[in-house]
Amino acid sequence: MLYWLLIWIAPGSFIGLAPQSHFFDYFYFSYITFTTTGYEDVYPITAFAKALVTSEIIIGIYINCHNCLPELQADNQPQEKRIKKITR
């Protein structure tokens, strides 16, 4: 939604997105950015658009790492502690 709004306020902020682009194009770009995949078919060209995309990338990395860390920490605990946590 933010990308759509930015395109309407400042057309030309992105290569590959335009005001007449379909909602799925905006969703696709946001998802690809959030997961830090980046296929380079849509990309920002203005400073504000780059800042917005960078913030979404940072949020995506944080959320992805935050979801993985408890599982990684559980793998490093002794077997007895993992069993106690499961049985509580």
Rank of each mutant, 00 (worst) to 15 (best):
I59Q: 00
F27N: 02
Q73E: 13
A47D: 02
F23A: 09
T37G: 11
I59G: 03
W4D: 04
L5R: 09
A47M: 04
V53F: 03
G60S: 14
T35H: 03
A51T: 04
F23G: 12
P44H: 00
Y43D: 01
A49K: 00
C68W: 13
F34K: 00
E56C: 11
D41M: 15
Q73P: 15
Q77S: 10
N67S: 06
I58F: 08
F14R: 01
F34P: 09
I58H: 07
G38R: 00
N67G: 08
A51R: 04
Y31S: 15
I57L: 06
A49E: 02
Y26A: 07
L17P: 07
I83C: 10
Q73Y: 14
S21D: 11
I9R: 03
E80L: 15
Y31D: 12
Q79E: 07
E71H: 14
I7D: 03
F29D: 02
Q79P: 14
E40C: 11
D25S: 06
P19K: 02
T33A: 02
L72M: 14
T35N: 04
W8K: 15
Y26M: 05
L5H: 06
T33V: 04
L2M: 14
T36L: 11
I63C: 12
N76D: 10
K50Q: 05
T36Q: 01
